[in-house]
Amino acid sequence: MNQLNSSFTETLNNHLVEEGSLIPLLQKAQEQDGYISPEKVAQISEYLKMTESQVYGVASFYSQFRFTPPGEHSISVCLGTACHVNGGETLLNTIGRDLDVRPGESTSDKKFDLKRVACLGCCALAPVVKIDDDIYSKVNVVKLKEIISNYE
């Protein structure tokens, strides 16, 4: 823990003490831990000389930041318009039901977390699902089960 904290101190020192550094620092914090932990918020607020509630106020405004630890694998279901009209919501519901997880949360065994995203920009290949860094195109319920089984 101490080692992690010290590496984040280094990250902090690479940023100017100004409001404009807040979002990049939150992004770095999430990159390191997978989420925005209360400890990191405390560190950032101290470094930028802002209150913790100010930090939370900005962090909670943006959909990128999460406040609970992620699962081992992150599943993002695209619900952009092209994916919506091609059945993206069915995929989201199916994953939710099969893995017993709600969007924004992780499974009880911490294997997966599920989130809905506005658009991954692969609209011509809708509907798409992203697991970690891999994007799967033209997914349907049958393909989805196969894809997820590769991560189980």
Partner: peptide
């Protein structure tokens, strides 16, 4: 390069400016 943190309203210019400044967009 400034990475956006996911807010549709930041496409609006004044909101985008606030976001670069580290505020709510």
């Amino acid at each position: 390069i400034k990475e956006g943190a996911g807010a549709f309203v930041c496409g609006e210019e004044t909101a985008l400016i606030h976001s670069i400044e580290g505020k709510r967009g």
